[in-house]
Computed example of a mutant assay.
Amino acid sequence: MTTTARPRGATVWLTGLPSAGKTTVAGLLRDRLRADGRRVEVLDGDEIRRFLTAGLGFSRADRCANVRRVGLVAEVLARNGVVCLVPVIAPYAESRDAVRARHAASATPYFEVYVATPVEVCAARDVKGLYARQAAGMLTGLTGVDDPYEPPTDPALVLRTRAQTPWESADAVHAMLAEHGLTRRAGRVASGVNSRG
């Protein structure tokens, strides 16, 4: 009796400022990967905050703990053949490095994707009204405004969303995964993408 090898999983961590487009890109990529026949899960930052890390606040320590917990779930899923898409801000390099190290320890593919949308563009989009609330004095600790964001120094891919559509951004990540044998090569590849920073 022959058995078919389970496809390798991977984690794609989409980091960037609030309203950068992380969740939009993740949703489009999820649909595309499912069409390829891949098992995919999206670990959405807002849902994680409501359930898995509901007791954590927004101090540096709590933000790092949040990222580490999400990273644990992502690594377990990816290690078991799932492509795990993680549109989570993860503002601090130390916590992102810890997630990368967890994946490396189990030889699980991990890709840090920097959704490099300038803060002024994010503020104009303001999908959740966070920038407006911060400007009105109703919110403090907004990442990239009055709380730090440490951009990745060596991401696997940089998405400059001001210059490309969400579909082009999703295409770029899909192409990267295809290059690593993690999905089928298909469709168009986005232009205007700066790979490796």
Rank of each mutant, 00 (worst) to 15 (best):
M1Y: 09
T2N: 14
T4S: 14
A5G: 02
A5H: 08
G9E: 09
A10P: 00
A10R: 02
T11Q: 06
V12E: 04
W13D: 04
P18Q: 03
P18G: 06
S19G: 13
A20P: 05
L28K: 11
L33C: 10
A35R: 15
R38V: 02
E41F: 13
V42A: 10
V42G: 10
D44Y: 07
G45L: 01
G45S: 12
E47S: 08
L52P: 09
L52G: 05
T53S: 13
G55Q: 14
G57V: 03
G57H: 14
R60L: 13
D62V: 01
C64E: 15
V67G: 06
R69F: 01
L72D: 09
V73Y: 05
A74P: 12
V76H: 12
L77K: 02
P87K: 02
V88F: 12
I89F: 10
S95C: 13
D97E: 15
V99E: 09
R100L: 10
A101N: 03
R102P: 02
R102W: 03
H103M: 09
A105L: 11
S106H: 15
T108A: 07
P109R: 00
P109T: 00
Y110C: 04
F111T: 01
V113K: 08
Y114R: 02
T117R: 12
V119Y: 09
C122F: 11
A123D: 05
A123W: 05
R125N: 05
V127K: 09
G129A: 10
L130N: 08
L130K: 06
A132V: 11
Q134P: 01
L142P: 02
D146W: 13
D147K: 06
P148N: 07
Y149I: 05
Y149L: 04
E150H: 13
P151W: 04
T153C: 10
D154I: 08
A156V: 00
T161W: 04
R162L: 11
A163H: 13
A163W: 11
P166F: 09
E168R: 14
H174R: 14
A175W: 08
L177Y: 02
H180R: 15
R185H: 15
S191I: 00
V193T: 15
S195M: 03
R196I: 09
R196K: 10
